[in-house]
Nucleic acid binder design. Structure first.
Length: 359
DNA sequence: GAAGCGTGGAC
DNA sequence: TGTCCAAGCTT
């Protein structure tokens, strides 16, 4: 009996999961947080890796993950650590609220869950730093629950397989429904990693390797020749530039003055060099910002400019160097110890700039 | 819903 | 050089 509904299915097909799992078994990547085939995943390591991997590449995460799990092998160890030490270990990885939430989350898992991560997606979702994606990822990967993960990779893969041309973020609910419909009952943990691996290695934003894709026959975007254009995204606003003068203040022992930023917001809780306000204005001269300096000194502006791109603005600084007159309260560090200070990258650039011009 | 929140690598 | 963007979450 001819059946147009099955010969031209309304969706790419019910058998996509098995072919993807077969591909995954052949191309499984070895990663520090990934359990070996047949072995049980450690929920702590899965959680830790998922937090680190938020908006961050595998290459950037690897060394941080090994360092963290070496220092703090269990969630109880991490919960018992001082936040300062966690922030210092996190320095350079970016999105520092993740580190603060991670530390809070570890404390809650110990206090409320006896040091054992919940396996239920809704319970995981309640933990700080754990959103829809991360809750689903932990449920699927650590506990093999049939949770549908929805990250940037899955969005892209779904947009292409189903040729969804509606731009993000409007298309998100549609893409999520497609992803949920494809999630299998068997091996949901492997499937979650497989579909993300597919997006990361085959169904890439540019130049997708459709020839190697296990779903190439089913892919509607490839058939229409529009795979590389998907998913469509709304244009983003231009980034403004903020400028400031950073103060490199040294004492009679050659130590430099640092301070700790407020606990929330931009670079919350991280170390920084004192500076004038970060304003969307032309670069101020020394006379305009002398009142914001951390103390009296024979300030002189060093040649050159420090540039740094943040998420929503570009940052330009000039560095004023000076020798402190008298003693001043604050955090004084020898320049050769700055490597252990846990400086965010923007501050590290200031330090390099100052040292280059003062030596 | 929109804005705030880092960084480094690829092209 | 600039642009995009990566296993998102919080407010």
């Amino acid at each position: 009996m001819p059946d147009t509904a099955t010969s031209t299915p309304s969706h790419p097909g019910p058998d996509l999961a098995p072919s993807l799992l077969a591909w995954y078994d052949r191309h499984r990547r070895v990663l520090p947080w990934r359990a070996l085939p047949g072995q049980k995943a450690d929920p702590y390591r899965v959680w830790l890796s998922e937090i680190m991997l938020q908006q961050t590449t595998v290459a950037a995460v690897k060394d941080y993950f090994l360092d963290f799990t070496g220092r703090w092998p269990t969630v109880a160890d991490l919960a018992a650590a001082h936040l300062d030490d966690v922030l210092r270990a996190w320095a350079g990885l970016g999105y520092y609220a993740r580190a603060r939430n991670m530390h809070r989350c570890a404390g809650l898992v110990v206090e409320r869950h006896g040091g054992v991560f919940p396996s239920d997606e809704a319970e995981l979702r309640q933990l700080p730093g754990v959103g829809d994606y991360t809750a689903a990822a932990i449920a699927a990967i650590a506990f093999d629950r049939p949770a549908a993960v929805m990250d940037g990779n899955v969005e892209r893969v779904m947009a292409r397989i189903f040729a969804v041309e509606t731009p993000l973020p409007t298309a998100k609910p549609t893409l999520k429904a497609h992803a949920a419909a494809l999630t299998p009952r068997r091996r949901p943990g492997d499937y979650a990693q497989a579909v993300m691996d597919l997006g990361a290695t085959i169904c890439t934003p540019r130049s997708p390797k459709c020839i190697l894709c296990p779903w190439t026959e089913a892919c509607r975007a490839r058939r229409r020749g529009i795979a590389e254009t998907l998913p469509a995204k709304l244009a983003k606003a231009a980034k403004p530039t903020r400028r400031a003068v950073a103060f490199w203040l040294t004492d009679d022992q050659g130590r430099v003055l640092l301070r700790r930023r407020p606990p929330k917001g931009m670079l919350g809780g991280m170390m920084e060099f004192p500076s004038s306000a970060w304003l969307e204005q032309p670069m101020p001269d020394l006379a305009a910002v002398r009142g914001e300096a951390p103390g009296a000194a024979d300030w002189r502006i060093l040649p050159g400019l420090v540039r740094h791109g943040f998420t929503h603005f570009d940052f330009e600084l000039t560095v004023a160097a000076g020798r402190s007159r008298g003693s001043l309260d604050g955090i004084w560090m020898a320049p050769d110890q700055l490597g252990e200070a846990g400086l965010p990258t923007a501050m590290w650039k200031i330090a390099r700039h100052a040292l280059r011009h003062l030596e």
